[in-house]
Amino acid sequence: MMDFIVIPILALLAATAVTVARIRNLWAAVMFTGIYSFLSASWMLILDAPDVAFTEAAVGAGITTILMLATLSLTPRRHRKSGRLSSEDFEERPSKSPLFPLLIVTITGCALVYGTFDMPHFGDPNAPIQVYPQPSFVEKSQPDMHGLPNVVTAVLASYRGYDTLGETAVIFTAGIAVLLILRKNTDDQGSSESQSVTGENA
C-alpha cells in the first residue's frame, strides 16, 4: 500500500535532482531545490522520522530557498548600464563538456553501489544500527523523562544534551560570521578597517 506513495515520490525526487543538474537558469534551479527538499521531507515522513521531515520542510524548502534567492538577487551575472535585469543575467554560462565529470560520477556511483551489497536490507530489524546502542533505551526513556513520549526530543535534549549545546553554539557562530561578512557598516563610523574595504569597493 505504501509503495503507491513511495514510488512516485522517489521518481519525482530523482527527476527533480536531474532537472536541477541540467537547468541553466539559476532562479529555476533554486526553486527546484525547494521542491527537492519538500519531496525528501515527504519521504522522511514515510520513513517514520516526523521530526526530521518537519525540519527539512521548514529549513530546506523555506529558509534555504529564501536565502538563495536573496543571494541570487545580489549577484547578477553581467551589469548593464541601464534597464532592468533580465532573466539572462541569472543564467549560468554554457558549461564545458560534461563527459569527464560524468565519467567520474559514474565510477564513484558504481563503487558505492558495489559497497551496498554488504549492507543490511531496508527495514531489517536486526541490522547493526538497530541492535548496537541497546534498544531498550527507548522503553526506558519514558520513566526517565517523566513520561514524555517523544524519544527524539528526549535523546536530543537530555541524553545527548551536550552535543546539542555544541550545535547551538555552531549556529550562533555561523550567525555571527554572516553578520561580520555582510553587515552594512553605517552605524559603526569608528572602525577603520571596514571603512577601507568599502573605500576600495566604491
Binding site: T55, A58, G62, V152, T153
Partner: peptide, 21 residues
C-alpha cells in the same frame, strides 16, 4: 509541545523566523 509530539526548538525557531521573514 515538542516533548509530546514531533517538534522542538529547532523547528519552532525556524517557523518563527519564517513568520518574521
Amino acid at each position: 509541545h515538542g516533548d509530546f509530539g514531533p517538534g522542538g526548538g529547532f523547528q519552532a525557531g525556524v517557523i518563527f523566523a519564517a513568520a518574521l521573514i
